[in-house]
Computed example of a mutant assay.
Amino acid sequence: MSGPLDGVRVVELGAIGPAPFAGMMLADLGAEVINVGRLDDDGMTAVTHRVLLRGRRFVHLDLRHPAGAEVVRDLVGDADVFTEGFRPGVAERLGVGPDDLLEINPRLVYGRMTGWGQDGPRAADAGHDLGYLALSGALAPSVGDGGRPVAPLNMLGDFGGGGMLLAVGVLGALFSAQRTGEGQVVDASILDGTALLTAMHQSMLASGMWQQPPGGNLFDGGAPFYRVYRTADDKWLSVGAIEPKFYAALLDGLGVDADPAEQFDQTHWPELRVTFATRIAAHTRDEWVDVFAGRDACVVPVLDPDEAAADPHVIAREVYVDRGGIRHPAPAPRFSETRTELPEESPDDETAEVLGEFGYTHSDIRRLEDAGVIAAATGQDHHPHGE
């Protein structure tokens, strides 16, 4: 068995963060992903993105050279998906924009990953995860001590609102292209995707359930039963007992005498936060884990990455997989009839081999080397078909 995207070919231009994450997801699902990286790459992306770049075949080109763009167009001729993470207009200037590639391959799904989107006043601006969270309205409600907004690493914007949105968009457009024979452009922006992730929060705002200042509401640490508490050993315990039956189990486990019927009466929340904090601080994290074992109270220890990898449930599910001393999150989701195994590692550079498979002769590759489009050493150990 192979992944559900077996037989799908993806060509992705080298990028950082969300676009490679989308490519990783597609590779995990069984797609063949050819990564076209920069010829002058300093190597830092390969270090910081080693997990994100799994499951690829790597080609390195000088895209600023017209012949480099021509190689990309050749690769795309038989591809199903193409992705890029440039600012708006850059791909067009390089000769690999949607019009260029859809003319060659009308059924192509052209995925575009940006921070702000392809249009709008900020479209050409630089940006990073934190700014997209800030402008979308997702950052302000995420507060820490003193009401300071705290970014949830770069998972919410770059990867949840960005890369995963691109992957979903590509899959939707791919399904359409297979039915109609017509490709299209997928405009995925981190701003749009992050806003999409606020759907439940928007409902709570509209219903009046979220009306207190930051830090005083249900999911922002205001609710004593949905909060993280420090333990006696300077570790942390997460408490997420929203439903009444879980809240009752929480009170019982903590030994707190409070009326379960007053759970959502916010006038009691400040006092209960202090009570819960005092009780939890009296014992270690693992002692509380033992107390709540078998209770449906939604109390879970906060684990660091090494502890998480050693957790019995995480091990049983094989949530993480070790490869060459690097911890990889396993492909997700899982399928009943097709496999989503961790893709094999690929050599750093297969430029000549890939081009040979696309019909480039030894002489063609030599001309690209001489023109500086590909590295001179690339073609020396490979022998594509014919001259």
Rank of each mutant, 00 (worst) to 15 (best):
L102Q: 03
M200T: 14
A249F: 01
Q266R: 15
Y360W: 02
T45D: 14
V239R: 00
V36Y: 08
L166Y: 06
L101I: 00
G14E: 10
D286H: 10
P329I: 10
P213C: 13
L272G: 03
S189A: 11
L196C: 15
R56S: 14
L153Q: 15
V47W: 15
R122S: 04
A352N: 01
Y360F: 02
A126M: 07
F246E: 02
W269L: 05
L75N: 03
Y247T: 07
A376Q: 03
V33M: 12
Y360K: 00
R9M: 10
N105Y: 02
P329Y: 07
R317V: 11
G208H: 12
G120I: 03
F58P: 08
S176V: 15
D257V: 13
G372I: 01
S346Y: 06
A22K: 10
T45L: 15
D41Q: 11
G97W: 01
G356V: 00
Y132R: 02
R227T: 02
D290C: 08
T231K: 03
V81G: 01
E84R: 04
A377S: 11
G379K: 00
V299A: 01
R323Y: 13
D348K: 09
P343D: 04
W236V: 04
D74I: 12
E32R: 13
A27L: 08
H283T: 06
S336L: 13
D286M: 09
G14C: 13
D234S: 10
E287N: 09
L237K: 00
A167D: 05
T83V: 08
R57D: 12
F21W: 09
K235N: 07
G162C: 06
H49I: 14
E387W: 06
D304G: 05
P224A: 06
N35Q: 15
R64P: 09
D322I: 12
D311M: 09
H60L: 11
D119C: 04
D286Q: 11
W116E: 00
G215I: 10
E387P: 07
A316T: 09
P141T: 06
N35F: 15
S176K: 15
F175G: 12
H362R: 03
G183N: 07
G222H: 05
I315S: 13
P213K: 13
N154D: 15
A123P: 03
L53P: 11
R64I: 11
D99F: 01
E32T: 14
R327G: 11
R56L: 13
S346M: 08
A195Q: 12
D381H: 09
S238V: 05
W116D: 01
A167H: 05
Y320M: 10
R148D: 14
D42Y: 12
M44R: 15
G14F: 09
L29K: 05
T361S: 01
Q178R: 14
D234K: 05
L303P: 02
P66S: 08
G115H: 01
A232I: 09
D257Q: 12
I315G: 13
V239W: 00
D381K: 07
A308W: 03
P343R: 02
G120Y: 04
F159K: 04
H383P: 00
V143R: 05
C298I: 03
A232C: 10
D257Y: 13
N154E: 13
V51M: 13
F335K: 08
G137F: 05
T198D: 14
R295G: 04
T231Y: 03
F225Q: 02
S336I: 12
A232G: 06
I326V: 14
P301K: 04
G222Y: 04
R279L: 08
R366Y: 00
G77R: 08
